[in-house]
Design a protein around this nucleic acid. Structure first.
Lengths: 333, 333
DNA sequence: TTGTAGGCGTTATCAC
DNA sequence: GTGATAACGCCTACAA
């Protein structure tokens, strides 16, 4: 195997000089620099990544631990992460948990063992205590989740506000009978979105009807099932706010099959603005957020942390946008 | 910093014994085993991943280099890869190139430097020569691409056959005026699919009309643009075979906007069976392939290679299925 | 500007 | 069953 020693011999210098040439880490005479470069070329020498990582005690790798890489919003976030990682000469590891707690634990464990220099955690299942302990050991940034006291750095949008605004928009369109399909309430953004919905109703003195508040898996199928159930109800809302676009799309799919016209018979809104939202018909009214940008910012924060620099903010909140399309009907008074 | 030496001291044994306990790599008396385990617990010792990787000269990491992680078909493939990697105690690195040649080169370079123990390459831009050279240095498996001589291991489906079958299906429905929207002809599966289309026409003695053969980006926008262009044509085909679902969806989107009814005025078919295909209306007739399974098999092959075992086959071809839905009209003779 | 040499934490060989 | 110890390849004081 080729190594720095052989290169040094070949070039007639010491390993220290070769190392200095490779890393531009110290003074080297032009003459020696050339000799070393030649030796490297002739011998086709490539520094051993693993020896380096070992010696420097850093892997130049980041890991993101998340539930489902196939969720388009996460896939986009990963793209953002990867772009910034690449720009900073980091590599990105994927820790896909498939919603499996055991698997998440394994990834967190290998993170603790120093597999990566830092991590982006998306909706982890671990408790606050364990999270804080992890935070003590290795740089982490939370995405789509945050600790109220902002101890652990995080990125996200104002989910509460966005949901509030969306509900407000529906109310302005004359709706008084509004239902909600919530996400998993263990996920903090799901809680926030639900709170935003509830608060908007409250501020407008519109009653919250318990039977019209559902919970669903964060998938098209999840929304489909809820709508199916709702078909059996004699008294239905005129509008339905959904935790995310997938759920909303499931609702629309089921409604269409059942002959319920959207938005004539039922208004539906989503959250996230995934690609499909513009493709279904009618096009879905939803909240746009840039998962890509969220991913970028998360890694930028993370690298700052790894470098031991100070964070300007421990919480980065990006903007969102109401995307008004065709799934909300304006009701006459 | 905690290390194996301190554990050994604490337990009153040698580092060799500690190592043997940790890795079950040799005989250890029960008494010593217990002492070592205790020491590990008390001292909260975790083996240093990087030292290990260095010593063993393997990273236990695989990398997949691909153009766009956000493409649902690739995201699914990655999920499959990650699952198998996880099952085999490997970690998966993502090398997203964003269609950037330079970036691809960088990833290939770090692969050569031993960053990962092996790689899954999806539609790389590198030539055959460079690919073979890479193949000599490090285990690789190709996905969605293959060398006709099967030197380099690969996974995929029979794209030629699938495209042929789909075209045949359209012909059986009475269509004689059939157009094609091709993908990037540098991508081998795009070539195969086009060939399948052409051969089906030929075998049925149906003329291939040059103006009806287009090329598009592999995106919704790409398909949209082609359809836009086709609107200006006086003489249009009655059916359009598309390289993939995204393109087909773009076509449908544009057609709908332009008042062209699908499939009444124009039949359209896709390829891949992405999620959205069942959501748009009308639901898209397409070819189903399991990208997830492709990803799984690719990594299984790769790990076999890394272990130095023999491959049963150098090319794995998975099945595909014609998904007949609502975008092809049966024409009366 | 250059070279010597120690050490990072682990595994694995070899002798006991 | 066990322990000393030599690698693995690199970087970086430190000395020259």
């Amino acid at each position: 195997m080729m190594n720095i020693k052989k290169v040094a011999e070949f070039a007639g210098v010491s390993t220290a000089t070769v190392s200095r040439v490779i890393n531009s880490s110290g003074p080297v005479s032009e003459k020696n620099r050339v000799k070393v470069m030649e030796a490297i070329n002739v011998l086709e020498y490539r520094p051993n990544t693993r020896a380096r990582e070992f010696r420097m005690n850093r892997s130049n790798e980041l890991i993101t631990i998340l539930n489902d890489i196939c969720n388009p919003i996460f896939a986009e976030a990963i793209k953002g992460m990867e772009d910034v990682a690449y720009e900073n000469k980091y590599h990105l590891l994927i820790g896909n948990t498939s919603n499996n707690k055991m698997r998440e634990q394994k990834y967190l464990e290998s993170l603790k063992m120093g597999k990566a220099d830092g991590a982006i955690l998306i909706t982890p299942r671990i408790g606050k205590k364990a999270l804080l302990e992890l935070h003590d050991r290795v740089p982490i940034v939370l995405m789509n989740d945050y600790m109220v006291d902002e101890i652990i750095p995080s990125v996200g949008i104002n989910d509460y506000g966005a949901s509030y605004d969306m509900t407000q928009y529906i109310i302005k369109n004359g709706h008084l009978r509004i239902g909600y399909i919530a996400g998993n309430q263990k996920v903090s953004i799901a809680k926030e979105r639900k709170k935003g919905f509830e608060m908007a109703l409250k501020d407008n003195k519109i009653p919250l009807i318990d039977q019209w508040v559902f919970q669903a898996e964060h998938t098209i199928e999840g929304g489909y099932q809820v709508m199916k159930k709702m078909m059996n109800m004699a008294d239905r809302p005129t509008a339905l706010v959904c935790y995310n676009d997938e759920i909303a799309i499931g609702v629309i799919k089921c409604a269409t099959e059942e002959g319920i016209k959207i938005p004539e018979h039922l208004s539906v809104v989503g959250f996230d603005n995934i690609n499909t939202s513009t493709i279904i018909s009618p096009a879905l009214t939803t909240i746009h957020q840039s998962a890509y940008e969220l991913g970028r910012q998360a890694v930028e924060m993370l690298i700052t942390l790894i470098n031991g620099e100070d964070l300007k903010k421990r919480r980065i909140t990006l903007d969102y946008q109401l995307k008004i399309r065709d799934t909300v009907k304006k009701l006459m008074k």
